[in-house]
């Protein structure tokens, strides 16, 4: 921690009154907040916000820059890794936890090969810091395979429709498809085309992927029992 010296610390005794108070009093509509935040978000009461303000008295901790042990909730398990704050979630999965389904391809949040699901939403693992994923629910492609079970309907649909060639983009596409189908149980062909535009394939497997996602949607509706 070399960085605090050249910064003016601003404790509670400093004159500024940050915007919290005003916001709490007049700017927050709980109804609107609820609406915006969506299901599952924590709704803060005024009391909670006041508590939050009081908590501001404590200086916020800075982690790193050296490696620290973090615990990540991955596929339902807590997994520990010793990483620097600059480590991405993707590199942590691949290099520290040997979870290599997610691939590093563009490494700049463009191609989708590293797609994972965090708190129910598809995201690019290459563009999330591992330390930022602490406390969030991370799902990787590995979660779709259970020992002794048939392949997940999405995986099977990719195979049935030959929606892969070299296969290096495929894990990302399967996860993007899962995220898409979780939110669109009855997609049309057009929906599929518009819903998977966050991933790129080089071999050219898109025709198979379109069919695979439609087939998987059917399968997940009609059976999908994976026992």
């Amino acid at each position: 921690m070399s960085s605090t010296k050249d910064r003016t610390p601003r404790g509670p005794s400093s004159p500024p009154e940050p915007p919290e108070t005003e916001s709490v009093k007049s700017n927050f509509s709980r109804r609107g907040f609820l609406q915006g935040a969506g299901a599952g978000a924590t709704v803060l009461s005024t009391a909670a916000l006041l508590t939050e303000q009081e908590a501001a008295a404590a200086p916020p901790p800075v982690t790193g820059p050296g490696a620290v042990e973090i615990s990540l909730n991955i596929n339902g398990s807590e997994m520990k890794a010793n990483v620097e704050p600059r480590e991405t979630l993707l590199d942590t999965l691949r290099n520290h936890l040997d979870l290599t389904a997610a691939k590093r391809v563009c490494d700049r949040g463009t191609c989708g090969a590293c797609t994972v699901i965090i708190d129910g939403k598809v995201m690019y693992g290459c563009t999330v810091l591992a330390i930022d994923a602490v406390g969030r629910k991370i799902e990787t492609l590995e979660s779709l395979s259970a020992p002794g079970h048939k392949p997940h309907p999405i995986i099977q649909a990719f195979v049935n429709n030959d929606a892969q060639q070299c296969g290096y983009c495929t894990p990302g596409f399967v996860m993007a498809s899962k995220g898409f189908l979780d939110r669109n149980a009855n997609p049309t062909y057009e929906d599929v085309k518009k819903g998977l535009t966050g991933n790129l394939c080089r071999c050219g497997t898109y025709m198979g992927i379109r069919k695979a996602v439609l087939e998987a949607a059917q399968e997940l509706k009609t059976g999908g029992n994976r026992a």
Partner: peptide
């Protein structure tokens, strides 16, 4: 490059960083 990481709970805390 290396960096330190903080996840403040309030804007005030964040500003202080």
């Amino acid at each position: 490059e290396q960096f330190g990481y903080a996840s403040p709970k309030t804007v005030k805390e964040a500003l202080a960083l």
